[in-house]
Design a protein around this nucleic acid. Structure first.
Lengths: 337, 337
DNA sequence: TTTAGCACTCTGGCGCAGGGAGTGCTAACA
DNA sequence: TGTTAGCACTCCCTGCGCCAGAGTGCTAAA
């Protein structure tokens, strides 16, 4: 793999990313001043194909990069773009607002990333599973309904309206909430799921249903709800590789499977920017896509990820730079929030 | 418009809804026992075309219904299906759960409708704009953050975390919330938007930013957020008229414009099941679609709507029945909730 | 080692013919 | 007078062959 092969491969991938058309030797020698003739490039391309970096759709077409080719490009050839100052400004401005809930930042991030990249984006919100219960409170809402408010150590707040037909005794409920807080403070939500059946001190008989419902809700419903935010899914329709409705269906269908995406993301390495090319994602429905993902933090802890989904010939250099910059900015914003 | 013409038109539309193929006279005489020969049907079809109920894609193709044809079919010929007992059971079961927030019912409804009809569905949640403020409370969350909880007379509860760097005086905040409640109870959220600047009695100087932010949030952000719920958008991909990516883009793009949908829905007549065929919707992006919509109530008041979006050759009889049944069931569920 | 030249291959577009589906018209029939 | 059978005609769709264009691989010369 000498220097010239590297340059040919880089030029070819650059061109293919821009045009989505198989690239021929003549095109390369004309558009990129490689200093050699098309015949030489032809030989290099034949070698690169033999090495598995390129593929030929059919005998008399140009070459396109293989997954391996993209991988080499991402790891060895490309370097992340320097973002345009406009883009940088846009990222800064996006988080300027104060007094917002975490969920607002998540939405904002998803929209921002999909607009900057022109690909669909996904943001995974901090999970509540790992968070530890901090306290539970109850607010009367009327004659026969209360609002349960749960706070975790990560500062995440969940709340839920519960109706109690037949009314309730507020003092009793308050005591119960205090008791509950005392007993379960510091227990992770995940663990709480297994302890739904635990007896709670105090007179719970009347409100057993309430607690069980509330716990189920805390543990299950709200835990996964809103965890995955998708923005700009229709961006995928702008790329010629998705002119086919069946391919579109698979990708958009995948983006609707929020629970599956969440679970899938659990298996990824912990930190930093990752790139998955084509089949590397191990997900059938997005074999024709690449994924670029980065984590974000609250303090020192990784709490969530953002990702960009695009065709395999994604504009990696730019997307990586954006994802990197946004994840840092988001981490900062969350630290201040 | 004699009886035979009506029967021919009905048969033709039924067939076209099922097959999406232009229907010829021979097909009609074979599949539907109309008691006359294909030649006679041909004559009737020519008449129906002249009257504007049918169209011909090209000279030697069968006929397809025009918008006017569908309109006549919906108004005069068709009657809503009797739902299968399975479907009825499914609708009943969907709302059986208790102790749920309004938003849960909305999501449930959207999913249910899109699954039953196999078309995309949209549900408009009760607006908060018309709701009147009932009370505002504040809960301490830690050293420098509080949770604002706002309740309206419609029983809608919104809440919002606000950070107050530098700490706060809880007693003062509580008094302020009480004061605020006193002053604005009974004022609609819509009105509240215009009165954000109103002075509040008590010492607000320290917390002015808090109130302004909170009000802005109540009035603007949460008011429109989540108001429109879409389910099953990809169902549209199953219909051959949307095999073209550009058409898909327009329809799915429309379904993403939640604010626009909300506004659009404001202009519809108040109550009952409505059908809009093709251009009748007055929305460019869904000229190739029909819409079936129904309202639902809390007590005697219409508070929201659900709608089904499908190709013009929608299965009106079934969809109308479903939309009708679901809207009634939802109204009941909300009355009990 | 590089390059020019050339024969070869494959795709995609175009024109054309034939089959099929459906129509409209005409004339016969009840 | 309304209905039907028959028939010529129209138009779409499909498959086929052909050709131009793009690109390759190989060979031979620089």
């Amino acid at each position: 793999m000498d220097e010239r092969k590297r340059r040919v491969l880089e030029a070819l991938i650059t061109d293919y990313i821009a045009t989505a058309e198989p690239v021929g030797s003549r095109t390369l020698s004309r558009k990129y001043h490689l200093g050699v003739s098309s015949a030489t490039i032809r030989n290099e391309m034949a070698d690169l194909e033999e090495l598995g970096f390129l593929e030929q759709p059919h005998t008399s077409a140009g070459r396109i990069p293989s997954d391996k080719g993209y991988r080499f490009y991402v790891d060895q050839l490309m370097q992340p773009d320097r973002l345009h100052t406009d883009d940088i400004a846009r990222i800064r401005v996006a988080y300027r607002a104060r007094m917002r809930e975490v969920q607002w930042f998540i939405h904002q991030t998803a929209r921002l990333v999909s607009e900057l990249t022109a690909y669909p984006s996904v943001v995974l919100a901090p999970g509540v599973d790992e968070a530890k219960l901090f306290d539970v409170r109850v607010l009367p809402l009327g004659r026969d309904a209360v609002l349960l408010v749960m706070q975790t150590d990560a500062g995440i707040i969940q709340n839920h309206t519960v109706s109690l037909p037949g009314g309730f005794d507020m003092a009793e409920l308050k005591a119960l909430a205090a008791e509950f807080t005392l007993q379960f403070r510091g227990v992770s939500i995940k663990e709480l799921k297994d302890r739904i059946g635990d007896p709670v001190a105090g007179d719970v008989s009347r409100y057993r249903g309430l607690w069980q419902g509330a716990l189920q809700w805390m543990a299950a419903v709200e835990g996964d709800d809103d965890k995955v935010t998708v923005a700009g899914p229709l961006n995928i329709l702008n790329y010629p590789e998705f002119r086919d409705v069946d391919k579109v269906r698979r990708v958009l269908g995948f983006l609707e499977q929020e629970a599956a995406i969440d679970q899938w993301a659990q298996s990824w390495p912990a930190d930093g920017v990752q790139v998955m090319i084509g089949a590397e994602s191990l997900v059938d429905d997005i074999q024709d896509c690449s994924v670029v993902t980065a984590t974000y933090r609250v303090g020192p802890y990784v709490v969530g990820r953002l990702m960009v989904l695009g065709p395999r010939r994604m504009h990696y250099a730019r997307v990586i730079a954006i994802v990197q910059a946004v994840s840092e900015e988001l981490s900062q914003a969350l630290n201040w929030a």
